[in-house]
Nucleic acid binder design. Structure first.
Lengths: 113, 113
DNA sequence: TTGATAGTTAAGCATATACTTAACTATCAA
DNA sequence: TTGATAGTTAAGTATATGCTTAACTATCAA
């Protein structure tokens, strides 16, 4: 599959890293500056910037710089997209399970019903 | 954050790869053998096995070998967990947006209401 | 009992990822 | 106008990831 980077690839890849999920976690509470996001993380500021770049390129986070402060916020639409991908697969699987159950029920010998 | 691998890390990391999402995609339709999963993928069988290993270690997929055929199936619980992580963050963000909206509404000068 | 099928293991390799430190630029406030 | 704050860029490095081919084992069916 080499390297095609559709929107979902970027989103799931972004969410794959615990530091980046910690950032999303923090941003769920409301907007925050870069250093605010960096403070609790056990790594250097430039490392946090890289994570932020990945999150922005994935569309999960947007940011805006005013004066010397860059304020980051969650972009809920991309979260929804990732969410929906998972939900759809899980529901498909569960519907198939249900169908199988119904089939087994229908084809059961009379005395077992 | 180096390398802690909690359940969600493994799950999101597994979903980060397009080949692995293709496998989940296929498995949503129902159980499948290793070579059935490999057929549509543009890579060697051993490569598919590695992806399968990642999926199994993440708990998203389980498999069972009968005779010489290994049959793989989705484990919906882990899908749910990943799903829930995203949903919770998105909802938290959206509730905060709502609160902000309500606050702005309440503090608006009378004539703007 | 032999050949085809299904899967597995091992070794190796190229690239991507997640960091680091050092040096730098802009903004703000005294 | 100087020093602190907030962020950025660059260069380098260690490890992880995603693949390959070759060689192997186990099962099944004729």
């Amino acid at each position: 599959m080499l390297n095609y980077q559709g929107p979902l690839d970027l989103a799931f890849q972004a969410l794959a890293d615990p530091a980046r999920r910690a950032i999303v976690d923090r941003l769920a509470l409301g907007p925050a500056s870069v250093s605010e996001l960096a403070r609790p993380l056990p790594m250097s500021l430039p490392a946090v910037m890289l994570h932020l770049k990945v999150l922005e390129e994935s569309g999960l986070v947007k940011s805006e710089k005013v004066g010397r402060v860059r304020t980051c916020r969650i972009e809920p639409q991309m979260l929804s997209q990732a969410e929906r991908w998972i939900t759809e697969r899980r529901q498909m699987w569960e519907r198939n399970l249900d169908r199988l159950g119904a089939f087994l029920e229908e084809t059961k010998p009379e005395h077992e019903k």
